[in-house]
Deep mutational scan, measured.
Amino acid sequence: FSITQFVRNLGLEHLMDIFEREQITLRVLVEMGHKELKEIGINAYGHREKLIKGVERLI
């Protein structure tokens, strides 16, 4: 299971460039909250919320 699959499953594949540029893996994403996601350029609250909720389902 990769970050690419995870992001695609959430319908947020347009954010993949950010994850690749910042070298974010699923392991790193698990540790990130709204503040960190915003810092790397994910400005939409809804997108950040989707990512965080998606990660919570993985754990």
Rank of each mutant, 00 (worst) to 15 (best):
F6T: 01
N43L: 15
D17G: 13
L37Y: 05
E22R: 12
L10S: 02
V55R: 05
G54H: 06
I59D: 06
G54W: 06
I40W: 04
S2E: 11
E20M: 12
H14F: 15
L10D: 00
K38R: 10
R27I: 10
T4M: 12
M32I: 04
I40N: 02
I52M: 09
T4H: 14
I52N: 00
G11Q: 08
V7R: 01
Q23L: 07
H14S: 11
E20N: 13
I3V: 09
E56K: 15
I40T: 02
K53A: 10
E49V: 14
Y45W: 14
R27H: 12
V30Y: 11
L51W: 02
E36F: 05
I3Y: 03
V30T: 12
R57T: 10
V28Q: 15
N43W: 12
E56L: 14
R57Y: 10
F1T: 10
M16H: 06
E36L: 04
E20A: 11
S2I: 08
R57H: 11
K50M: 13
A44I: 13
G41Y: 04
H14N: 09
E36T: 04
Q5E: 15
Y45E: 09
Q23P: 05
V28K: 15
E39F: 08
A44R: 11
R21A: 09
G11E: 06
L51N: 01
L58A: 06
K35V: 08
M16G: 08
F1M: 14
V7D: 00
M32Q: 02
I42M: 04
N43Q: 12
I40Y: 04
V28L: 12
R21C: 05
R8L: 09
F6Q: 00
Q5D: 15
H14W: 08
L10V: 06
G54E: 08
L26P: 03
I3S: 02
M32R: 02
L26G: 02
N9D: 15
G54S: 08
H34W: 05
F6H: 00
I52E: 01
R57Q: 13
Y45M: 09
V55W: 06
L37V: 02
L29W: 04
H47A: 15
V7F: 07
R8E: 07
T4R: 15
G46E: 15
R8S: 11
I52S: 00
F19Y: 02
I42C: 05
N9L: 14
M16C: 09
I59Q: 11
R48H: 02
L58K: 03
K50V: 09
E49T: 09
F6R: 00
L12K: 00
N43K: 14
K53C: 09
R21Y: 06
N9Y: 13
N9F: 11
G11C: 07
F19A: 01
V28C: 13
L10P: 00
L29P: 00
V28R: 15
F19N: 00
I3M: 13
G11Y: 05
L12Y: 02
L12T: 01
F1N: 09
L10T: 02
N9Q: 13
Y45N: 07
G33T: 07
Q23N: 14
R27M: 10
E49G: 04
E13G: 12
K53F: 06
R27C: 15
L37W: 05
A44W: 12
K38D: 06
T4I: 12
R21V: 05
N9I: 13
Q23I: 05
E22N: 15
Q5G: 08
G46T: 14
A44F: 12
E49M: 13
E13Q: 11
L51C: 04
E31W: 11
G11H: 08
E39I: 08
E13I: 10
S2T: 15
Q23W: 06
N43F: 13
E22I: 06
Q23C: 10
V28E: 12
T25D: 09
E36C: 05
G41P: 01
K38L: 13
K50N: 05
F1V: 10
K38I: 13
E56C: 12
G33F: 03
E49N: 09
D17Y: 15
Q23M: 10
L51Y: 01
K50L: 12
R57C: 12
Y45V: 10
E39Y: 08
H47P: 08
L29V: 04
T25M: 04
H47S: 13
